[in-house]
């Protein structure tokens, strides 16, 4: 156990600190912004696409399963990232309009 903690201490630090940051950062959000915030967070977890890129980039040329699934994963991940950010921007565009007037 102690060995495991020592070996992975960097990761453990990241996990714990990020949990607190995640909670602190959105602690005081007004309810009007719940939806855009959810949508924005949705786009951010699209980082999973980096994993898909690595899978795809490491796949050997004859490993069709990895190639096909990796390709699919890249498409889906991109959908998540691009679609997520564009939808969020569209939602927030509406908010901005009324701020300017």
């Amino acid at each position: 156990m102690l060995n495991w903690i020592t070996a992975n201490q960097q990761i453990i630090y990241i996990v714990i600190l990020m949990i607190f940051v995640g909670i602190e950062v959105i602690g005081r959000v007004p309810s009007v912004l719940h939806t855009p915030l959810m949508s924005g967070a949705n786009a951010i977890h699209g980082v999973v696409i980096i994993g898909a890129i690595i899978v795809m980039g490491k796949a050997e040329g004859d490993n069709y399963l990895a190639l096909i699934l990796g390709f699919l994963a890249v498409i889906l991940g991109t959908l998540n990232v691009v679609g997520g950010f564009v939808v969020t921007d569209r939602m927030l565009e509406m908010f901005k309009k009324k701020k300017n007037r």
């Binding site: 995640g22 967070a41 977890h45 980082v47 980096i50």
Partner: peptide
């Protein structure tokens, strides 16, 4: 997504994933 981060020891996937995991739960 964070699991992917642990798998590849990829810091940006870890931070992004856990951040959303925590913030999403609170939200």
């Amino acid at each position: 997504a964070a699991c992917g981060g642990f798998l590849y020891n990829n810091k940006v996937m870890m931070t992004g994933g856990i951040l959303v995991g925590a913030a999403g739960t609170l939200l």
